[in-house]
């Protein structure tokens, strides 16, 4: 029973990781942009949830408003800054997005200070299901998992089955040819970047009630996101899903079975996968 609950913990953590990393893998895989500021967008989402929940009094209202704000932010950044660097070396992108981390951290400090904040769990979901005598499972965590699964399915459908998804895939496999065929690549890229930012911000918003909202929260998740992307294969949504679940379970079991080495479980997994498949588990979507 205990191990079943631990697997559930792992899957639940993995699904949240997927939501975090999917935006990163899209931007990295389709646009070829290394976005170090991805963690900052997660943080922006969490602080948006905090601010909008205070303003509107409900997380349900804060979520759609926050997503709109995040899409706008993403589109604006792509149009104003990222766009100028497509033709350049990765190093410029790294510099720019690292600068964005500093800017967002400073803005966060000016607007919200350096304290830890909490976002209340919506009352409708603020209860736990008893699993054993002593342990209960918070329903809000199950809700997060459900939302992650739904979003994964939606992303799969959009990219595989819609005209928009076709343009995205075309832009990914051959940028010039797609452009010649009349696909507005700059617009597609703006869309992809905004989508990536919105996914990260949404993850931050939905996780805010369980993660609490604090300075530096974005930097904590950035590295694990890159691990997911690298294991899954750059640009592959399916790969991100499989990798996120693998990491979630490996990390959870590592903490329980080998507590002294728990920090290493994830990186061991990455090393093994990369020896076996140097380009990651899956090819780009």
């Amino acid at each position: 029973m205990d191990y079943l609950i631990q697997i559930l913990n792992g899957v639940q953590y993995g699904l949240l990781l997927f939501l975090l990393a999917s935006g990163l893998t899209l931007i990295f895989g389709i646009m070829g942009v290394i976005n170090l500021a991805h963690g900052s967008f997660y943080m922006v989402g969490a602080y948006l949830a905090l601010w909008l929940t205070r303003l509107t009094g409900s997380l349900w209202l804060a979520l759609p408003l926050g997503v709109l704000a995040a899409v706008a932010l993403g589109a604006l950044l792509e149009w104003a800054l990222i766009r100028r660097l497509y033709a350049r070396d990765h190093l410029y992108q790294v510099l720019l997005t690292f600068g964005l981390i500093l800017v967002f951290e400073e803005l966060r400090s000016l607007l919200f200070g350096n304290d830890v904040h909490g976002v209340p769990i919506p009352p409708a979901l603020n209860f736990s299901i008893p699993l054993t005598e002593t342990l209960s499972y918070p329903v809000y965590r199950l809700f997060i998992s459900g939302v992650c699964l739904a979003l994964a399915a939606a992303m799969y459908l959009v990219i595989r089955k819609t005209r928009l998804g076709m343009m995205v895939r075309a832009g990914n496999s051959n940028r010039e040819m797609a452009q010649v065929l009349g696909v507005d690549i700059p617009l597609v890229f703006t869309f992809v970047f905004a989508l990536g930012v919105a996914l990260a911000a949404f993850a931050g918003m939905i996780a805010a009630p369980v993660s609490s909202v604090f300075p530096g929260m974005g930097n904590q998740i950035l590295i694990i996101c890159f691990v997911v992307v690298v294991i899954g294969g750059i640009g592959s949504i399916t790969g991100a899903m499989v990798a996120a679940l693998l990491i979630g379970i490996a990390d959870t079991l590592g903490k329980v079975l080998l507590p002294q080495f728990s920090g290493m479980a994830v990186y061991l997994l990455m090393a093994v996968v990369l020896i076996w498949r140097p380009r990651g588990l899956f090819q780009a979507t």
Partner: peptide, 20 residues
């Protein structure tokens, strides 16, 4: 002793362990 790497905050597995 239940330990997790600094500064991770995914406590769920440790809480499950403590409960058992």
């Amino acid at each position: 002793e239940l330990l997790l790497p600094f500064p991770q905050v995914e406590f769920q597995p440790l809480l499950t362990e403590a409960a058992s």
